[in-house]
Nucleic acid binder design. Sequence first.
DNA 1: TTAGGTGCAAAGGATTTGCGGAATT
DNA 2: AATTCCGCAAATCCTTTGCACCTAA
Lengths: 153, 153
Amino acid sequence: MDADTPSRIERLCIDRGLKMTGQRRLIARVLSEADDHPDVEELYRRALALDARVSIATVYRTVRLLEEKGILERHDFGGSRARYEPTEHGHHHHLIDVDTGRVIEFEDEAHEAVMQAIAARLGFELVGHRLEMFGRRVEPAPPPPVPSKARRG
Amino acid sequence: MDADTPSRIERLCIDRGLKMTGQRRLIARVLSEADDHPDVEELYRRALALDARVSIATVYRTVRLLEEKGILERHDFGGSRARYEPTEHGHHHHLIDVDTGRVIEFEDEAHEAVMQAIAARLGFELVGHRLEMFGRRVEPAPPPPVPSKARRG
DNA sequence: TTAGGTGCAAAGGATTTGCGGAATT
DNA sequence: AATTCCGCAAATCCTTTGCACCTAA
């Protein structure tokens, strides 16, 4: 993606009337190019690699702002820090590979339907829900010698 | 529950060979009597009310120990601190009332089945999962003057 | 007796914030 | 020009820990 072309997230920011500074543009670009679920530390690292004129405080502030604007979603995948991803593709959930830490996204209509049904049964209107599954690959090749970084929250 | 009768949690601790100190007995009792999902601060408060000889550090240590032993489950309901509940009744999940903060527990076989199916479809063996729903009570009375509820993402 | 638990206060890690200077509309 | 933002460092919040003392087994 060209550095001068407004990134997808930058466009969203503009649409919502946010003042676009150099650092916001930068962070928006990093977010737009991410296809994973980075934490603030990681976003900061990626942003720094493109332009050193950012502070981690600004990344925190921006990420928070974008979450409030509905542009970003915050997740808790069990680690100690929050991880973010752009709100875009329809409602989906996450399967975390407990051996590698890799996050697989998925959506499932049956599941959505069940959610609605459960809420209704309990007398509630569903305004949101969150699902994380933790799994282990079924009979993969013998696991690599990479020590799993078991971080606890 | 009599203060001298071992609480349910205390029994579990004994079964797992944990050294039972006065503070552990106390915390075990508080946990056994809780039917909600208190955070450490709250557990500490309740314990203090029964016996002042506890420190919050011990509550933190105990809660962590019991979680490692599988006696407690830690939850993240969106607030800033972790909340705990005894591991007991079968696998269940939580519906958080977004207006009152109240937590409703439920279990649902259909949902469990769907979980398994999703994991299998993705080539994983399910080792755990976490589900939280956020909802709002549906009132039987006619809807308020504001007709359309703008769906927020 | 001895491994392990406890209290206190200090340390830690993630995130927020006050403030003076700087950039955007 | 007015408003909002940024960087820095200090502050917060929740949680963990080092250390000296205490206690269950």
